[in-house]
Amino acid sequence: MITLKEIENLAALARISLTEDEKERMRGEFDAILGYVASIRNVSAASAKNIRSIVATVNVMREDGTPHESGIYTDVLIGAAPRREGNYVKVKKIL
């Protein structure tokens, strides 16, 4: 059983706030979902050793270089930010 405190901690990690009702509801749903998901624990892991995925999981590197002229995307990308000041994204003071 997951506790209300755990739900609150997870919400804090996810940068989300929940109402008291939502926390209760989420707790019930979590128990059902985690109960279902727990079935993977019954799968014997012995045969899973030394299996390499068919999907290649290797790092793909490229040479350092200049992929494009500096600054050509700046305006459109910064322009997507809700708050901007010149070529900076504006946020609230941190310190």
Partner: peptide, 30 residues
Amino acid sequence: ARRRLLLGAYVLSSGYRDAYYRKAISVRAM
């Protein structure tokens, strides 16, 4: 979205990562 964000935080939390995430990855390989 909020439900799944919390689930993601849960399965990646220390203490649960081995029980859920690593186990799921090995089931996937199988």
